[in-house]
Design a protein around this nucleic acid. Structure first.
Length: 572
DNA sequence: GCCGTTTTCGGCCCGACTGTTTTCAGTCG
């Protein structure tokens, strides 16, 4: 995908310019452009084709021409030139926490550091101390930073961050000094992966809260500790930042600490234009605070609707909020059923009645039992006979049960040529059909796209499950022509799944937004195999919210009757 | 490098913590 490549080049250029101590605003311009390009919901070549590059925020004449150059030649000559001017060890050193451009340059110039290993050796031999501004402590911190890099915790999946944050929040909540406590940062925005965890507390005794925070049993190291801001590393290598503010600043601090940075900058710029100032303590006219106790007040001060955290990426949400055009986002309580659940019959661990019990506890109206199909032998795919037996079993169960309706379904394999792993005659007997690719990931983009489009043209296929096939941190998405797929989905009346399994989150938030623009319907589903996985629905919801999807376009926010109508309409 | 209902030039969000100083630069978010 061009977008990520161009974003990376701009990001690298920014780093090099930083080393060269260029104009910081010029550096920021590259970073901002990188952000913009990364967050686009369409390939940037589409914008270039339609002469739309200059309309993108932060892209002017110069960056537009660099983008065009990349699209035509696969390179940006200015970047190629810059690369030659800067030693790669310098750029490597920037990755060390605590080491910025000034320190990196100093180290390179005084010690001719050739690599991170070289730096580590010199630091260990205490040869770094003695440089202007560097003493024992800085040397120690460089070694700590290097060790952190080696661990390379990278980014964690949303569920891991959630669990860690929950533990810390529940531990601190019991302190009498803590008034309010909330997750913030990318976790509150529910990004698909999280680098570090941000937590906000209101208290009148910040120092006490911090003391308790850094003493939590899972703390391995304290990176910083002040009365309002502290940072620790857990034993699992997760960085957690805690910020304490007074109760009257809760909203302003929550907004500031939730981000995104780009969203905050845009809001602050807006404030400046109106003669106001936003910081983490409030909105100020001169020295007087005029808002800040809660987020709602701040947004309404600017005559805009409240912006949910998941939308705060500066990708048009501020403009939409000003004109009152934000989508009606889905909440957990809107979900009326789960349409992708496995049982013991294939590779799940739950029985039909266990699933029904869990679904009732969630106040669901319906559940689609969707086991794998016959060719997926490794996952215990059901033979024709076994599927027929399961249909019978589900019908019997429904007769003897109240409060939940089970639908007989399948997660049928889309074969290499786009045909279905069960005959139409068999599919017709089911209440609901989801189809998915589980093999042949290495086919060409054209072939994979054609396979999915063909599957959608089957009148019995209601949902395409985990369309892009990725496993975060393990397997990349295969290449697809999403424009073709979304267009076909709308035309054929096939919904696209938002798979809520934290390693999948597939369709992705960015692609959701494009699909929504093209009129696609969605289904949020957990792909449950074990008991706990039915709780993953919140992660799927977060993707839908980040993708700007309107509640009315989500199939399983509808009542059973309407879901049945959706199926009937395609079969007719 | 971008951008404009004050501007096509001169602005560009704002503050905390650390380690080193002895008033602040560097780094981070």
């Amino acid at each position: 995908m061009n977008n990520s490549q161009i974003a990376e080049i701009f990001e690298k250029i920014a780093e090099i310019l930083e080393i060269q101590q260029e104009n910081p605003f010029r550096i920021r311009a590259y970073r901002r452009a990188a952000e913009t390009v990364k967050n686009l919901s369409e390939d940037i070549s589409e914008f270039a084709r339609k002469d739309g590059l200059l309309k993108l925020p932060g892209i002017g004449a110069d960056l537009a021409s660099k983008i065009k150059e990349f699209l035509e030649t696969g390179k940006v000559s200015a970047y190629e030139k810059l690369k030659k001017k800067v030693d790669s060890s310098l750029l490597d050193m920037l990755n060390i926490p605590g080491v910025g451009p000034k320190t990196a340059k100093l180290l390179r110039e005084k010690f001719k550091i050739k690599s991170l290993a070289d730096l580590e050796a010199k630091a260990k031999a205490h040869k770094i101390r003695g440089l202007p501004g560097i003493k024992e402590k800085t040397e120690e911190n460089i070694l700590k930073g290097l060790a952190f890099l080696k661990k390379d915790t990278g980014r964690m999946c949303l569920d891991v961050a959630f669990t860690t944050a929950e533990y810390i929040i529940s531990s601190l909540k019991s302190l009498s000094q803590v008034i309010k406590i909330s997750p913030a940062g990318s976790l509150r925005r529910m990004k698909e992966t999280i680098r570090d965890i941000d937590i906000l507390v209101t208290s009148k005794k910040g120092g006490d809260v911090m003391k308790a925070f850094v003493k939590l049993p899972n703390v391995a190291d304290i990176a910083a500790q002040g009365p309002t801001k502290s940072s620790i590393l857990t034993k699992e290598g997760v960085q957690v930042d805690l910020r304490v503010v007074a109760p009257e600043s809760y909203g302003a601090a929550l907004m500031y600490f939730t981000g995104s940075k780009a969203h905050n900058i845009k809001m602050r710029e807006m404030a400046v234009k109106r003669g106001l100032k936003i910081n983490e303590y409030g909105v100020f006219r001169g020295k007087r605070s005029i808002a800040g106790k809660n987020e709602e007040d701040i947004y309404s001060l600017f005559k805009m609707s409240y912006i949910e955290p998941e939308l705060r990426e500066n990708t048009g949400e501020i403009e939409a909020a000003l004109r009152g055009g934000l989508p009606d986002l889905v909440k957990l309580k809107d979900i009326k059923g789960d349409i992708h659940v496995h049982t013991k019959a294939s590779d799940g661990s739950l029985s039909i009645s266990e699933i029904a019990r869990l679904a009732k506890a969630k106040k669901y109206e319906y559940i689609v039992i969707s086991n794998h199909s016959k060719s997926l032998k490794i996952a215990g795919g059901l033979s024709d006979k076994k599927l027929l037996r399961q249909i019978e079993e589900i019908r019997r169960f429904n007769k003897g049960s109240k409060g939940i309706r089970l639908l007989a379904g399948t997660e049928v394999d889309i074969r290499g040529d786009g045909s279905m792993d069960y005959s139409d005659k068999l599919l017709r007997k089911l209440d609901f059909v989801i189809a998915a690719i589980h093999s042949g990931f290495r086919q060409s983009k054209e072939k994979l796209t054609a396979r999915i489009v063909k599957a959608m043209q089957n009148r019995y296929v209601n949902v395409i499950a985990h369309p892009c096939g990725r496993l975060i941190g393990e397997r990349d998405a295969y290449e697809l022509d999403y424009e073709k797929i979304f267009t076909a989905a709308r035309k054929t009346g096939t919904a696209i799944e938002i798979n809520a399994y934290p390693k999948r989150l597939d369709l992705t938030d960015v692609n959701c937004r494009r699909a929504r623009e093209l009129g696609v319907k969605f289904a949020i589903a957990t792909d449950t195999h074990t008991k706990d996985q039915m709780d993953n629905m919140i992660y799927g919801i977060s993707v839908a919210r980040r993708g700007w999807i309107d509640k009315k376009d989500i199939l399983n926010c509808r009542k059973l009757k309407e879901v049945e109508k959706f199926v009937e309409k395609k079969r007719a």
